[in-house]
Design a protein around this nucleic acid. Structure first.
Lengths: 328, 328
DNA sequence: TTGAAAGCGCTAACAT
DNA sequence: ATGTTAGCGCTTTCAA
């Protein structure tokens, strides 16, 4: 593959001039520049990004490490990040940590080793270590879940508040024993949603409480839901922490012949594309996923431009969308 | 940030020894190696991947360029690729071309410039240009859709056959005017599905044919479906080319008060996680997405190891899963 | 405006 | 078993 020296030789100039011409520096004679471009085109020259980045000590790529590629919430974030990154001339590479701290660590290492310009991260747990990145000057912005250890940029959703609202909605709809299915302890969104749920329950005279934690996966959610349904004092409504789990719960309900809505109140976090298609349609807490991504990317670019800015924490609001699954 | 020289200085050895020790070369004294590791740990040394790759002329990262991150079919492929790449010590970075040839080109350029070890690509169109990659020695394997211009490795699904089978299924179920909603011309899967549909229709005495093409997006599919439904001679069944479009069709049917199954036969490609939850559940053509990804990754790794192997084209079978939406 | 030359951090010959 | 040294391909002083 052609290198810069090949181009220089063919154009009859030095490599320095080639570099300048191809990078649009103004200090190069237009005629020469043209000659260089021709030579480059002729040879099919593609600059070696590794060498360039090594020299410049910087890269125009952002890493986005998300905890589940198969969750529409995170892919929507990805699109938000991507759209603003693109317009700023950055590429974004997506890494799937799969809710696995070990994989996450590996990808953060890769991000560090490849010297990406910045990282948007939805941490698998609160204790993810990003100090290496930070101390090396690679900015990190957390999305969806905070990084406990560091006081950095982050874009979160006021999910506790939203859980409280959703639970009150179920209470008002007349359900009496409202449960909650949430994620593992230590996952901040899981904890917050549970806390919001519990505060709404506590504020109500009638509703008693029962909840389960499980991994953020369909199969686990299904098992947990079945467990809940087969209990002596089974719930007649459920607040579910995300759409992946909601699928498991819906499978469980179907297996037990329980119809959402009339028999059983259902509210799930995340307005997945299919939520409104169910019968009855699924009531959801819609999170502004795309905005989370776009804001995070903007924060990241701002910090790349100026590392000394004070850390910025944004908290966006979620919105309850009432549909049939939470009405008798 | 600490460099290899810092480590060398602290351990009192040469940089070469540090390199050897840290890369697990057997030719280094265990005691020295230990000293090196200590020094590295003390300094928080992280090798500079750029420098390493520049020197080695290779990278342990694979690029996966997919045409839609929000489509579960592609994210399932991503997991397949990732799982085998991980076990072989490769990282995979995901790039979302978003069915946009321009974005795709940009990402392929990035892949080339960053000198990734290989690329798994689901091309937006058949005329995607990968000759640069190839001529530079970066292997490319196509998934889901073929690359017309080159005779390289690919993992496809016999989608034409599957479309034919699905259409015959609808005919046998007693629907009389069966339509097809497929993607843009030039997208091979869209064309093949249409062709399979048409061959089944042609083989049947009764069923007449009507089809629409539209972009592979929910909103476009909805518009096309409404258009079809409002025609004079509207279809009473539809074969849909993917799950993203299926959502649009389902929205359209709901708007027109048409109930899938009894009133209107429905088969869609791709067994999305929610397909079985609908009422009636959605009949689908399930594609082995995860296997597509894992096989593609294995092919890619094989070719990285030995570039001279003859190109390998795999064709996997899809499987019709009959559910309620295609039964009166 | 252009060229010569240094050097980014690492690995791999080669020499010892 | 270890060190010396060259060089991966590029950008960027520094001189001219």
């Amino acid at each position: 593959m052609a290198t810069i020296s090949d181009v220089a030789a063919r154009a009859g100039v030095s490599t320095a001039t080639v570099s300048r011409a191809l990078n649009g520096k103004s200090t190069v004679d237009p005629a020469l520049a043209e000659k260089v471009r021709e030579a480059a085109a002729y040879l099919g020259y593609q600059p070696n990004g590794l060498a360039r980045n090594l020299r410049r000590q910087e890269t125009a790529v952002l890493a986005l490490v998300i905890s589940d590629v198969e969750n529409p919430f995170f892919t929507a974030i990805a699109r938000g990040v991507e759209d603003v990154a693109q317009t700023a001339g950055y590429s974004v590479v997506l890494c799937n940590s799969d809710e696995n701290a070990e994989k996450e660590r590996r990808y953060l290492d890769v991000a560090l080793q490849e010297r990406v310009a910045g990282v948007v991260l939805s941490p698998t747990g609160g204790d993810t270590d990003v100090t290496q990145l930070l101390s090396r000057g690679t900015p990190v912005v957390a999305v969806d879940r905070p990084l406990n250890a560091v006081d950095g940029d982050q874009v979160l959703v006021n999910t506790r508040c939203a859980a409280d609202e959703a639970t009150r909605h179920l209470i008002e709809a007349g359900y009496r024993r409202i449960g909650c299915l949430t994620g593992p302890e230590g996952v901040r969104t899981a904890d917050d949603r549970l806390a919001g749920y519990q505060s709404a329950i506590a504020a109500s005279a009638q509703a008693t409480t029962c909840y389960r934690r499980c991994e953020l996966r369909t199969a686990h959610a299904k098992a947990a839901a079945l467990d809940l349904l087969d209990e002596g004092d089974a719930p007649d409504a459920l607040l579910i922490a995300n759409s992946t789990m909601a699928i498991g719960v819906l499978e469980a309900l179907r297996e037990r012949g329980i119809r959402p809505g009339r028999d059983f109140g259902l509210v799930s976090f995340d307005d997945a594309p299919w939520a409104a298609l169910l019968d009855p349609p699924l009531t959801v807490v819609a999170q502004p996923a795309y905005e989370i991504g776009s804001i995070a990317a903007r924060l990241l670019l701002d910090r790349i431009a100026d590392g000394s800015r004070p850390p910025e924490a944004r908290e966006l609001a979620a919105r309850l969308i009432e549909r049939g699954s939470s009405h008798r």
